[in-house]
């Protein structure tokens, strides 16, 4: 399975949404006629209030933090301090084991236990109880992807940049993304900023090899260079969220917004994403 490297870059830059929105909100669309006549006013209208627990939780080898907060009505201030609900009870369940997450009041976070390798390939359930409300999410922690090789692929013409690719072996229905250090000294992970790559794969759970784009190479990497590569693997639900997370617009010409696709159910919204991490040092081919 191959992907065009620029797919990621264009998606990242535009999300195929921004140009249209920028056109609409730049005040030029619908012509001078509308601009001359249209008027906006602050209105006193009572919008509905949907009280929800908000979950933002990632558990993996290098991280294991849950931010638990709540929604507040439109018109009130929402801040990480004011909306955090540290009096919530947060538990994680794996098979028959239940783990109660600890609290870090200085950062308003709940802390996951250290990852148990037995969790990989199995489902984890996060449960939150707060003020008579209950939210939960069950998600799979995929098996970690295996990095087979890293290599350079030349561009289409002699003046083009080359591209760094990796061949990895992944589980079906997962999202993978990479982080790398091209120097001999590894750098700190870049977190979740990189564009993930979704592999649909076969639903039979058999691991497949895929070719994944890592970066455009401006002569920083040569064959024989050493690189430390981390591959992060999460369940497909993360991909569903990523694909529409920017649809959350509410502007004059966008007819309301849509909520991202979360995987928390019950009285809550948000994400619970278990992540497997595989880090290897490899020689570029």
């Amino acid at each position: 399975m191959k992907t065009h490297p620029h797919h990621y870059e264009f998606t990242r830059r535009y999300g195929f949404y921004r140009p249209f929105v920028s056109v609409l909100t730049s005040g030029r669309i619908l012509v001078i006629f509308f601009i001359l006549t249209a008027c906006e006013q602050v209105i006193d209208v009572e919008l509905p209030y949907n009280k929800k627990i908000v979950v933002n939780a990632f558990v993996g080898d290098e991280f294991g933090v849950a931010w638990i907060s709540r929604t507040v009505p439109i018109g009130t201030d929402a801040s990480s301090q004011s909306s955090a609900i540290m009096d919530a009870e947060v538990k994680m369940k794996w098979q028959d084991s239940i783990y109660i997450l600890g609290k870090n009041y200085s950062s308003n976070t709940f802390l996951f236990p250290t990852v148990d390798s037995r969790w990989q390939g199995d489902s984890l359930t996060l449960m939150i109880d707060w003020s008579g409300m209950h939210a939960a999410s069950t998600a799979r922690m995929p098996k970690p992807s295996k990095i087979k090789k890293v290599y350079l692929k030349p561009g289409e013409d002699p003046y083009d940049v080359s591209y760094l690719y990796a061949v990895i072996e992944v589980d079906a229905g997962v999202v993978v993304w990479t982080d790398y250090s091209i120097w001999r000294q590894p750098e700190a992970p870049m977190g979740f900023g990189r564009i993930p790559f979704f592999f649909e794969g076969d639903p039979d759970g058999v691991m497949r090899e895929i070719e994944i784009y890592i970066m455009s190479n401006y002569n920083d990497v040569q064959p024989g260079s050493e690189i430390e590569l981390s591959v992060y693997t999460a369940d497909r639900v993360y991909n569903q969220y990523l694909k529409n997370r920017y649809h959350n617009n509410n502007e004059p010409f966008t007819f309301g917004g849509t909520n991202p696709q979360f995987n928390v159910t019950g009285d809550g919204i948000g994400l619970f994403i278990p992540v497997s991490v595989q880090t290897q040092r490899l020689v570029v081919e």
Binding site: L47, P48, Y49, N50, K51, K52, V54, N56, W67, S69, R70, T71, V72, P73, I74, T76, A78, S79, S80, S83, A84, N108, N248, N250, G256, G257, T258, N259, I269, G270
Partner: peptide, 20 residues
């Protein structure tokens, strides 16, 4: 319409979103 506000990414100052 929006039916609430939430802070989704406390590490980012622009992390306030609307729930629809």
């Amino acid at each position: 319409v929006p039916s609430g506000l939430y802070v989704y990414d406390p590490s980012w100052s622009g992390g306030t979103r609307e729930l629809f």
